[in-house]
């Protein structure tokens, strides 16, 4: 975004312009070359390790779900753009991210029709109905997943073992997620398996390592506010730790909380969504700790084994309120 200088814009007129013009422009004076488009494509890049691990663990079904979801999301965006008479916004990459994130939250055995429905709901209802990128209240991918969870409760909770565990079988044996195992059978899964992702679960929630690589890239490039993952993950460790300290036999330890389920994926890629997370620093801390509290309550006392999706969606809903109440004082403001 460069300031169009009068010299260049009037260059074609016959009036001869002096070389050194004094250029007057209003603030901001510092411009960055970063655009929405470049950020979005770098988020896609940051998600690629997680997607690669998903394909490594779950093989063909993972490829099919990821491709279906991304293509359906992009097509939905294009169709709605056309219906609204807007210019196509598919090249900004945001629909690709939504499709990719949605795919990573789905179980590997999920149906293709269901995946398409989820992507259409995510983009159509979750994003475009609110007015497109920047206007949506909820994270579109999670909204799509919530719709699927409510629509297909069985399909969304049928997990299969990774191909690495089940030998070469493409159709993995159905299994429970580490959180499900803990909740319903009180069995713990080893930390090493949890960390590299050699467990049952959604496509993208299995490998903490792959998500951390992409997540750290986002933090280093400052495309995600570090306060969100720190407050969310830190909150889970502290709140989960308090429960564990009081009743270690009844509740899982904080490390298990951190590594299992979709927590790390949610904390780095979904909670940090620029559109649906708070703006002010104080609000960001409240946002993260609020998510942690909701997550721990759902995991320990709720009917579902996992609560990342609802914790993020619920805090998305209060984000405008948080922004409003933590608005900083304007410098030089006079009390009226």
């Amino acid at each position: 975004m460069s300031i169009p200088s009068p010299a260049s814009s009037k260059g074609k007129s016959k009036l001869k312009e002096p070389e050194n013009l004094l250029i007057l422009a209003s603030s901001p004076h510092l411009h960055t070359t970063t655009s929405t488009q470049s950020i979005m494509w770098q988020v896609v890049l940051a998600l690629s390790p997680a997607a690669t691990m998903a394909i490594y663990y779950f093989r063909w079904p993972a490829v099919v779900i990821i491709l279906t979801s991304v293509i359906a999301a992009v097509l939905t965006e294009a169709v709605i753009n056309r219906l609204k008479g807007e210019t196509l916004t598919i090249t900004d990459g945001s629909a690709v991210i939504t499709g990719l994130l949605l795919a990573l939250t789905l179980p590997p055995t999920f149906s293709i029709g269901g995946t398409i429905l989820g992507a259409v709901v995510a983009i159509g209802i979750g994003k475009q109905l609110f007015g497109g990128l920047g206007y949506n209240i909820f994270n579109p991918a999670l909204l799509g997943r919530a719709f699927l969870q409510a629509s297909f409760p069985i399909g969304m909770t049928t997990w299969s073992t990774p191909a690495t565990l089940a030998g070469s079988a493409v159709d993995g044996v159905s299994t429970a997620t580490p959180l499900g195992l803990y909740k319903f059978e009180h069995a713990l899964t080893g930390y090493a398996d949890l960390f590299v992702g050699n467990v049952g679960g959604s496509l993208g929630e299995t490998s903490a390592l792959a998500i951390l690589i992409g997540g750290l890239y986002l933090l280093i490039r400052r495309f995600a506010d570090w306060r969100i993952p720190v407050s969310y993950l830190g909150g889970v460790v502290i709140i989960g730790g308090i429960f564990w300290a009081f009743a270690p036999n009844q509740f899982p330890d904080p490390v298990f909380h951190l590594l299992s389920g979709g927590l790390i994926l949610g904390a780095f890629f979904m909670a940090t969504d620029m559109v649906t997370s708070p703006i002010t620093h104080l609000a960001t801390w409240i946002y993260g700790i609020g998510m942690a509290l909701i997550l721990v309550i759902i995991r320990l006392f709720g009917g579902l084994p996992e609560g990342v999706m609802y914790s993020i969606l619920l805090m998305n809903a209060v984000t405008p309120l948080l922004n409003r109440y933590t608005r900083p004082k304007i410098f030089g403001e006079v009390q009226s």
């Binding site: 149906s111 029709g113 269901g114 429905l117 209802i125 719709f147 409510a150 629509s151 297909f152 409760p153 399909g155």
Partner: peptide, 15 residues
């Protein structure tokens, strides 16, 4: 056809 359970639940009514 796999029924969309959500449509017969309250969110389906609002949608």
């Amino acid at each position: 056809f796999e029924p969309w359970m959500v449509m017969i639940l309250p969110p389906g009514a609002f949608l």
